[in-house]
Deep mutational scan, measured.
Amino acid sequence: IQLFSRPDFLGDHFSFEDDQAALPASFRPQSCRVHGGSWILFDETNFEGDQHILSEGEFPTLTAMGCLASTVLGSLQK
């Protein structure tokens, strides 16, 4: 999965292949690309809070990911 700090796959980005119990504190994903398989994104660290399940594809905004525009993602799980 690739996470981007701005909508439309712009800004800083991080790529992950494994579960992340905590995303970098200063990084707030605003768009993402899922390459193969599914990922669960969580509103809180340690895989807690609301879950957003994404299958392979491109998600140019938080709302395209099924999140509110104000959502701050905290962790993710493959």
Rank of each mutant, 00 (worst) to 15 (best):
I1D: 03
I1T: 05
I1Y: 01
I1M: 01
Q2W: 07
Q2S: 13
Q2R: 07
Q2F: 06
Q2K: 08
L3M: 10
L3V: 07
L3Y: 03
L3G: 00
F4L: 02
F4Y: 13
F4Q: 02
F4H: 02
F4K: 01
S5W: 01
S5M: 07
S5L: 00
R6Y: 08
R6T: 00
R6Q: 15
R6S: 11
R6K: 15
R6P: 03
P7E: 15
P7K: 10
P7S: 09
P7H: 02
P7V: 06
P7Y: 04
P7N: 08
P7Q: 10
D8C: 09
D8S: 09
D8L: 09
D8N: 14
D8M: 10
D8H: 14
D8K: 08
D8A: 08
F9Q: 04
F9G: 02
F9C: 03
L10G: 12
L10H: 12
L10V: 10
L10N: 13
G11D: 06
G11E: 00
D12L: 09
D12W: 06
D12S: 10
D12N: 12
D12V: 11
D12A: 11
D12E: 15
H13D: 12
H13Q: 14
H13G: 10
F14H: 10
F14I: 15
F14V: 13
S15R: 11
S15T: 15
S15M: 14
S15V: 14
S15L: 15
F16V: 04
F16P: 05
F16A: 06
F16R: 02
F16M: 01
F16E: 01
F16D: 01
E17Q: 12
E17H: 15
E17A: 11
E17D: 14
E17M: 11
E17V: 13
E17C: 12
E17G: 08
E17N: 11
D18E: 14
D19G: 04
D19K: 02
D19S: 12
D19P: 01
D19W: 03
Q20S: 09
Q20I: 10
Q20G: 03
Q20P: 03
Q20V: 14
Q20D: 03
Q20T: 11
A21W: 08
A21E: 13
A21H: 12
A22G: 07
A22I: 11
A22Y: 10
A22R: 13
A22E: 13
A22F: 10
A22L: 10
L23T: 05
L23N: 05
P24Q: 05
P24W: 02
A25Q: 11
A25R: 12
A25E: 13
S26Y: 13
S26K: 13
S26G: 15
F27P: 01
F27D: 05
F27A: 00
F27H: 00
F27M: 03
F27Y: 04
R28N: 09
R28W: 10
R28A: 11
R28C: 10
R28S: 11
R28P: 03
P29H: 06
P29V: 14
P29Q: 01
P29N: 00
P29L: 05
Q30H: 09
Q30E: 08
Q30D: 03
Q30Y: 02
Q30F: 00
Q30T: 03
S31H: 07
C32V: 10
C32M: 03
C32W: 01
C32F: 02
R33W: 06
R33K: 15
R33I: 13
R33P: 02
R33Y: 07
R33M: 10
R33D: 01
V34C: 03
V34P: 03
V34D: 02
V34Q: 03
V34L: 05
V34K: 02
V34Y: 00
H35V: 15
H35F: 11
H35M: 13
H35E: 10
H35L: 14
H35Q: 11
G36E: 09
G36I: 03
G36V: 07
G36F: 07
G37R: 00
G37N: 06
G37C: 09
G37W: 00
G37Y: 00
S38I: 10
S38C: 12
S38K: 11
S38T: 15
S38E: 15
S38G: 08
S38D: 15
S38Y: 08
W39G: 04
W39E: 00
W39I: 00
W39H: 03
W39T: 01
I40Y: 05
I40R: 05
I40V: 13
I40E: 08
L41V: 10
L41D: 00
L41C: 01
L41W: 04
L41T: 02
F42N: 05
F42V: 03
F42A: 02
F42L: 02
F42K: 00
F42C: 06
F42G: 02
D43M: 07
D43Q: 10
D43A: 14
D43N: 10
D43V: 08
D43R: 09
E44L: 11
E44W: 06
E44A: 12
E44F: 07
E44M: 10
E44G: 14
T45Q: 14
T45K: 14
T45D: 11
T45S: 13
T45N: 11
T45F: 08
T45Y: 11
T45P: 15
N46S: 07
N46G: 11
N46P: 01
F47K: 00
F47L: 05
F47W: 10
E48R: 14
E48D: 09
E48F: 08
E48N: 14
E48L: 11
G49M: 02
G49T: 04
G49S: 02
G49Q: 04
G49H: 02
D50Q: 14
D50K: 14
D50S: 13
D50I: 09
D50G: 14
D50L: 09
Q51C: 12
Q51P: 10
Q51S: 15
Q51F: 13
Q51A: 13
Q51H: 12
H52M: 06
H52K: 08
H52D: 00
H52T: 11
I53T: 13
I53E: 14
I53H: 12
I53M: 13
I53A: 11
I53R: 08
I53V: 14
I53G: 06
I53C: 13
I53L: 13
I53W: 09
L54P: 04
L54T: 03
L54K: 00
L54N: 04
L54A: 06
S55R: 11
S55V: 10
S55Q: 12
E56N: 07
E56C: 10
G57L: 00
G57N: 07
G57A: 02
G57V: 03
G57I: 03
G57Y: 00
G57F: 04
E58K: 06
E58Q: 08
E58P: 01
E58A: 10
F59Q: 00
F59V: 01
F59Y: 15
F59D: 05
F59G: 02
P60S: 08
P60D: 04
P60M: 08
P60W: 00
T61S: 14
T61P: 05
T61Q: 06
T61M: 00
L62N: 05
L62Q: 02
L62E: 02
L62C: 02
L62I: 08
L62S: 06
T63F: 09
T63G: 13
T63K: 15
T63N: 11
A64M: 06
A64E: 11
A64F: 00
A64S: 15
A64K: 10
A64P: 05
M65L: 07
G66Y: 02
G66F: 05
G66S: 04
G66M: 01
C67Y: 10
L68R: 15
L68T: 14
A69S: 14
A69R: 13
A69I: 00
S70I: 05
S70K: 10
S70D: 15
S70H: 12
S70C: 07
T71D: 09
T71S: 10
T71W: 08
T71Y: 08
V72Y: 12
V72L: 09
L73T: 09
L73K: 09
G74V: 08
G74W: 02
G74F: 07
G74Y: 08
G74H: 12
G74E: 00
G74N: 15
S75T: 06
S75Y: 07
S75K: 07
Q77F: 02
Q77S: 10
Q77T: 07
Q77I: 03
K78C: 09
K78I: 11
K78T: 07
K78N: 06
